[in-house]
């Protein structure tokens, strides 16, 4: 019985303009990589701002970085690496027709992403309490440097944009669970899981660079 229903499903997902399932999968994946290129250049602009201002005010970065908690930054790095692992496991589950494993791994990923955002929330509110706001709203005198607001503007822009990506990732993962529960994914068709996985790993890679650049300088 399972055999026949699988057979019915087999060709269903192939759009008429593709030769076969494989070509469709490869095309979707290549499209995603092109999107990831634009994402890298998008974040690249912020990394460039970081580099330019660090070359102008190297001492500012050393002073301001002391106000970021390395411990929580490291915890968040571990959390994101764990979530990358569970996404990879989710793709493996889909490839092996393990419905339950797919849903469980996606759920763990969402939980880890939420932990990341909660930690980020506490880091942000702690800074807001001190008066560390971005740009012109900066109102903290604990750092003896005229340009202290610049470091935190860059910090908020980079971690904020990254946080928005994490939130979008959570949304995508919820969508995947809804579809997985309807039985949309199987070894012949799991493109959305693969593609969301690529997105999630890129978000992880960006954090891998943000962590040492923002937290680990002193």
């Amino acid at each position: 019985m399972a055999q026949t229903s699988a057979n019915v499903k087999k060709g269903d997902h192939v759009q008429h303009h593709f030769v076969d399932s494989d070509q469709q999968f490869e095309s979707a994946k290549m499209g995603m990589w092109i999107f990831l290129v634009t994402e890298i250049l998008f974040f690249g602009g912020l990394f460039l701002a970081y580099i330019v201002f660090r070359s102008w005010y190297p001492e500012l970065y050393l002073m301001a970085s002391d106000h970021l908690d390395t411990f929580w930054g490291a915890v968040n790095t571990v959390v994101l690496i764990g979530s990358s692992l569970t996404v990879a496991m989710a793709i493996r589950s889909a490839q092996l027709n393990q419905q339950k494993g797919l849903i469980i791994n996606l759920a763990i990923t969402i939980a880890l992403a939420c932990i990341f955002m909660v930690i980020k929330y506490f880091e942000y509110t702690h800074k807001f309490d001190l008066g560390i706001y971005p740009g012109a709203y900066y109102a903290y005198d604990g750092i003896a440097h005229d340009k202290a607001n610049i470091f935190f503007s860059i910090y908020y822009m980079m971690t904020g944009l990254h946080g928005i990506h994490v939130l979008i990732g959570i949304g995508l993962m919820i969508w995947l669970i809804v579809r997985a529960r309807k039985g949309h994914f199987h070894s012949e068709y799991y493109t959305p899981v693969e593609i969301t996985g690529l997105y999630w790993h890129l978000v992880d890679i960006i954090w891998i660079f943000l962590f040492p650049l923002l937290y680990l300088i002193d």
């Binding site: 092109i34 290129v37 690249g44």
Partner: peptide, 16 residues
């Protein structure tokens, strides 16, 4: 796909 990733890094370095 590797080429795409490498190109994005090269263009980022040109920007910097």
């Amino acid at each position: 796909n590797i080429l795409l990733l490498v190109m994005s890094i090269i263009f980022f370095m040109i920007l910097v």
